[in-house]
């Protein structure tokens, strides 16, 4: 194994795992209240928006696009998921519909 590559992996692991474990080390069993509590409870919903919205309306080169397989499949999946609550079924539905739109458009 290359020394250089190994060193790269070690440094990547240190910074990534560090970011993952630091809050546990510092704030484990601490009571969090007030504005900070609101903040940490809002992180998941904010991350969901940040992961989904740009993917649906931006091309890989960051131009706006409104008729594309991602947005169309996203809307269909949203409607389907409101009726069917099974996670696996919805993901399967999304994959098949995307494949269809991707062929057509």
């Amino acid at each position: 194994m290359g020394q250089e590559i190994l060193a790269i992996i070690v440094i990547m692991t240190a910074v990534t795992y560090g970011a993952r474990v630091l809050p546990f080390l510092l704030f484990r069993n601490k009571r969090i209240s007030g504005v900070l509590k609101s903040f940490i409870e809002l992180v998941p919903v904010a991350l969901l928006a940040a992961l989904v919205i740009p993917e649906l309306i931006l091309t890989p080169t960051n131009e706006f696009t409104f008729i594309n397989p991602f947005l169309l499949t996203g809307i269909c999946t949203f409607i389907f998921a409101r009726r069917v609550s099974n996670l696996f079924l919805v993901v399967l539905f999304g994959m098949v519909v995307y494949w269809g739109f991707d062929k057509i458009i």
């Binding site: 989904v52 994959m95 519909v97």
Partner: peptide
Amino acid sequence: GFDFALLALFIV
């Protein structure tokens, strides 16, 4: 279709 799997999960 695999390209959409994680997005579908996020939408649910």
